[in-house]
Nucleic acid binder design. Structure first.
Length: 275
DNA sequence: CTTTAACCCTGGAGGC
DNA sequence: TGCCTCCAGGGTTAAA
């Protein structure tokens, strides 16, 4: 269930191991992911060098010298570097063989994606999947003013507005609840009703929540080169509210509530968080 | 335009 | 033990 910190940790984990290396073979064992893996990739990728591993939101961007692979981990996806003789597990769908280094995509639920954007046309940032994404949460331009501007006139609940990713990317279902708790904002509050000061608190809360998660992920970087590690293990999040229905708020001891917004669970403290 | 719900998929949990 | 149902998650797409 990768959110932005997990994706960024993956990027940092694999980048030094695969960047600058020519690809020897690209193997697709199961093309039926979120969208079919383009059938031409095994023919057009080998021999080309992976220049760098980038990221936009939760999309990983593998830049080759003739195009960009757009990789999404979906719900259950994990990318890791494995030994040449590593056992093939079920759900090991895609493999990048760099000779000494092998990168594998493991994704039981197949909500992930591996796409291809060839050079020569529009820049990859204009790809339909990327074109309308909000700002990066670690972009210096992201702050309370940015949020306030984007939420003006919106009646949508703040939780769902965050999840939509059109104001800021990378805030998934878990960190949306956590960020709103940190900012003391009730998740059902209409986004447009948030004052500028509260937007500033929210922006700071989002940055802090993601920074904390990223820090805890950094200590598991070794997992990306250790074939014995837990596949797709979520960071050990010390959640304040997520999945804690009925348990005492860590601040005021009031029972944490669970509601459903847009068919997704939201957790909050009814005493600490106000509309 | 906005809002809502269905859908893609599998593994794990809980009920009986 | 087994079978059934439900749920989780991200994000696109279709429908209202």
């Amino acid at each position: 269930m990768p959110e932005l910190p997990e994706v960024e940790t993956t990027r940092r984990g694999i980048a030094p191991l695969v960047s600058g290396k020519p690809l020897r073979e690209f193997v697709v064992r199961e093309p039926r992911l979120r969208w079919p893996v383009p059938a031409e990739l095994p023919a057009i990728l080998p021999g080309h060098t992976l220049l760098e591993c980038g990221r936009r939101g939760k999309y990983l961007l593998l830049r080759f010298d003739h195009g960009v692979q757009i990789v999404h981990l979906g719900m259950s996806g994990a990318l890791r570097v494995v030994a040449r003789d590593a056992f093939l597990r079920p759900h090991d769908h895609v493999e990048w063989d760099f000779g000494n280094t092998i990168l594998r995509l493991h994704d039981p639920r197949r909500f992930g994606a591996v796409l291809w954007h060839p050079d020569g046309g529009t820049p990859v940032e204009q790809h339909p999947l990327l074109a309308h994404l909000g700002i990066e949460p670690f972009d210096p331009r992201f702050d309370g003013n940015w949020l306030h501007r984007h939420f003006t006139g919106k009646s949508q609940a703040i939780k769902q507005a965050l999840l939509a990713g059109q104001a800021v990317v990378g805030v998934g279902n878990i960190y949306a609840s956590e960020s709103l708790f940190r900012a003391r904002i009730h998740p059902a509050t209409p986004a447009g009703k948030l004052s500028l000061p509260r937007c500033k608190r929210l922006a700071a809360a989002i940055t802090a929540t993601l920074t904390d998660a990223l820090a805890s992920g950094g200590s598991t970087l070794r997992d990306y080169v250790n074939p014995d590690s837990q596949p797709g293990a979520y960071f050990d999040i010390h959640a304040a509210v997520y999945d804690r229905e009925g348990q005492p708020c860590r601040i005021c001891s009031t029972a944490i509530k669970r509601i459903v917004q847009g068919q997704r669970a939201t957790y909050y403290c009814p005493r600490c968080q106000r509309s």
